[in-house]
Amino acid sequence: MLYKFWQEALEYKETIIGIILGVILLSLFVILPLFFTANPYQTSLNIFSPPNSKSLLGTNDVGQDIFSRLIVGGQNSLRVALGVGIFSTFLAVGIGVWSALAGGLIDNLLMRMVDILLVIPNIIIIIIISAYVSPTILLEIIIISLFTWLVGARVVRAQVLSIKERTYVYAAALFGAGPFYLFLKHLLPELIPLMLTLLLQGMRRAVFIEAGLAFIGVVNPNVISWGSMISQSLNYYYLDVWKWWLLPTAGALSLSLISLTLIGYGLEEALISSSERGKTIAADS
């Protein structure tokens, strides 16, 4: 199931390009730090230094090594991405499945809650909360996850509802299968492609939101982030320093986001086309 889905996703050029881009970025982040090591927090009097053999991207306004900050920022982005991706997918699947299987009042309440939370864009709510708690990475993961599972839960619920109504599920139930068996055998495998898609999209959204929060300055100031690097460097656009401070950071952020977006798009298209094919098969039989 997963393999077939993956094959299908790879039929979209977007997926392949996204993966290639992602692999290149990741390998740069692994290889380059081997040659350029510096303490990202260490300030010095050598400010606005252009790139040189010691520091690949020079130094910033307080003399910190930009490249090592870029690397740590990337690592933090990745942490947030993975954390939010997993946590919000978990929430989406949990609540979506619960809502679909429970039905009735619980379903109604949960879905109404989703409706309500979706009216105001999640980034705005996350900003106001972050403004008060000034989160570090773990807290950031939790806050972002709490407001990014909504659409996923809706999709999961719809999927579960449609699977639940399929004749073979009824048939299995009539053979005497219990709910646990039905869930493991008939429901979960069908949800795995969707979960993978949600994971990827959750990761993308996390990087996106994390950068935004850091840019606007509501994250804990001790956390190194691409977003805050961009907003700091923007203050010195009139100096040449943007070429090795702003540009590489913006580039790293853009490329990571584009990579994740493309993979997510490819997965989603594959998901849609496979579910449409499922429909035609159902219509034929």
Binding site: A211, G212, L234, L246, A250, S254, L257, I258, T261
Partner: peptide, 15 residues
């Protein structure tokens, strides 16, 4: 368009 759609608004603004 899909590529650009993934970028946050401030990034496009900065560029």
């Amino acid at each position: 368009i899909i590529g650009i759609s993934g970028l946050p608004s401030f990034l496009i603004g900065v560029i």
